[in-house]
Each structure stands twice: as C-alpha cells, then as structure tokens.
Design a protein around this nucleic acid. Sequence first.
DNA 1: CCTACCGATCGGTAGG
DNA 2: CCTACCGATCGGTAGG
Lengths: 202, 202
Amino acid sequence: MTSAASPNESDAKPMVSPAAVRDVALTLFAERGYHGTALSQIAAALGIRTPSLYNHIRAKQDLLRNIVTQTTQEVWADYEAAVDGVDDIVERLRRAARVYALRHATHRREALIVNRDIASLEQPARSEVLELRRRHARAIQGLIDDGVALGVFGEQESAIAAFAILEMCVSIARWFSDDGPLSAEAVADKYSEFALRVAGVG
Amino acid sequence: MTSAASPNESDAKPMVSPAAVRDVALTLFAERGYHGTALSQIAAALGIRTPSLYNHIRAKQDLLRNIVTQTTQEVWADYEAAVDGVDDIVERLRRAARVYALRHATHRREALIVNRDIASLEQPARSEVLELRRRHARAIQGLIDDGVALGVFGEQESAIAAFAILEMCVSIARWFSDDGPLSAEAVADKYSEFALRVAGVG
DNA sequence: CCTACCGATCGGTAGG
DNA sequence: CCTACCGATCGGTAGG
C-alpha cells in the first residue's frame, strides 16, 4: 500500500503538482468565481490540507493571473496564426472568428474565468490583459473596415460589429458540451458564418 | 444643521432607504461581483455602519435575489409585450431582439449581475430564474423556427442562433455608455439588425 | 506533505 | 441609526 494509489480524490497518497492545482482551480473558479472559491476547497478537491497548497503556488492571486494572462496571450497568438498569409478578406474574418469560437468550445473554463473575473485580477496584470484584448478587438474591427473598403462587407459600424462578433463567440463557453450533438469544430464553423453575416457579407 | 444634508456620501445625516441600499448594491455587485462585495463596502458608500444595513435588508442574499429575479421577470414581460399582436415574423424577431438589446443598454448593472452572479444565487431562486431564461431562449428559437418554416429565415440551427443572438445583446452591457456616440435606441436598432442577419433573413 | 496558529474580515445579532 | 460583539472562515506563515 505504499505506491500507485488512485489518481486523486479523498483517500489517495501523492499525485499533486502545480499543474494539478491549476487544473482544479480552473474548474472551481469557472464554477463559482474567484472570490467564490476558497483555497480550502481547492485543497479538498486535491485531497490535501490548505497549507500544503503553498508547496505548489505562492498565492491565490497567482493562480488567477496565470490562467488569465496565459489565455489572453494564446487568444492573440491564435488570431495572428489564423490570418497569417491569408489575403481574401472574407476568409480572414472567417478564420479569425472561427479560431476564437473554437477556443471557447475547447477551453470553456478558461474562457468563463477570463470573462468573469478580470475585475479580480490585480494590477498591473489587469491592465496588460485589457490592453491585449483591446488589440484583438481592434484587429477584428480592422478586418471589417478592410472588407467595407473593398465593398465586400456592408456593416459600417465596425467597432460595434466587432464587439458583437467576439462576445457571441465568448458565449459558446456557457453552453457548449462535448457530449452535445455538435462538435467543437462544427460549432466554430457555424459561428464563423454568423460573424460574416453580422459584418454584412454578400 | 439639522435638516437637508447632501443626498449621500460620507458626512451626510439620514437619507437611507431599502431602495438606496439596493441601488448601491447594484453598482458594487456589478463592479466586483457578489462575493467580491462586502456589506461593509455597501454601508460605507451609504455613509452608515454595517449593522445599520439590517434596518433595510434581511440578508445579503436577499439583495442578490431581489435584483436577479426582478430583472429576469422584466425581461420575459418585455418579450411578451414586444411581440404581442405582431404578425410578421421578421418584425417579431426584430422587436424581440430590440427590446432585449435596449434593456442591456439601459440596465447595465442589472444585466452584468444576472449574467455573472447567477451561480451565487441560492435555491430555489436560481432554478426559477434559469427556467425563465430557458423559456425566453426557447421563445426566440421558436421565432426562428417559424421564420424558417415560412421560408423567410435561412438558419436551420435555431437553438444555436437563438443563443448567439441573446448573448450578443447581453454583451452591450459590457461596453455601452450614455456618453458614447450612439444612443441606447440606436444601439438596439443596430443589434436587432444583427439578430435578423444571424437568423439568415433575406 | 502535516499540525498549529496568525490577524483580518466576513455576514449577522444583541440591545439599545 | 449606533457600539459592542459573535462564531466562522478567509489567505497565509511557522516550523517541522
């Protein structure tokens, strides 16, 4: 009885790591919010006592900052990769919306936390995250402006349309399930079509 | 110096009421979330001590329940009034989306709380609110189904389109300002157009 | 990884 | 509307 216990839960032995703490925090923050989650709950889910968490993290706030900043940076990297080398403006917007929608179906917990607990993120991280999000929104707005200039998109209110498209995609995190009838890819395809319609394509 | 002090803030005298407590709670819950707001902060904003709040409320949870249930009921009443007596299916969806969008521009704090702190609402209120929201979403989905059956709308995935439309409107609460270039009515008009496009009109 | 413990703050009550 | 106070819980530290 000294080795190879069950992976986690109440009566297990070892098996805790910074990544495991982060994963539990991801689940609980997404469910109850940052302020609604106590470190004692994270510890309990891992089968350890609260002070033992400090072998893996330095502070509760670090968990939030880690989750939110990493996710936001990945969103921007996704965007750049999605439009890189693509010339057609319809295809650029389609891909930008698609990759954003896809992330919200495949990283639901991260998305819920980013969009709910940013106010709980301390400075300077909060400002950095907000700046990166603004850059993303402006990029989407720029795509719409480009399409309008080319006579391909009809929506003149590009800033509002960009917000509407992004937030529509964010909402996927609130209902998507891997057990549902549609795959993450199918949902992403559908939402990228919605995005083009909002931009006034065709 | 015995009567008629400034309306509120630190050095005022009387002027607190259940409605005033609710209004401050609305602002602080919207800013920091339910669990992120302490009753001591609400009291401080009103210029009174924490225990004095209990002359106006019975518990912190009552404030949240009051805000969330009232808002949700108003949303449903808005919907029913908006489509009542309207036959044309395009106009029905336009009005349903318009009134929902308008509410999110004119009741931003309520909207932010409803969409962020429902998990903090205790039972049975939470189930009641979620049921009413589902009814609303199904009603929007029904409008899309009707339009598709009539050959007016092109979007077959009516459930997903309904969610996308609703959440797009919700997001207005995250950026709208009365000081911005567009009025609440202009924004509501724009979003109701977005809604029709998502439904695949024309 | 633990027990023991810290000061601070939480929502809320007693009793004016 | 207040002061005084309650038990519970918070994030976090000491010291193994």
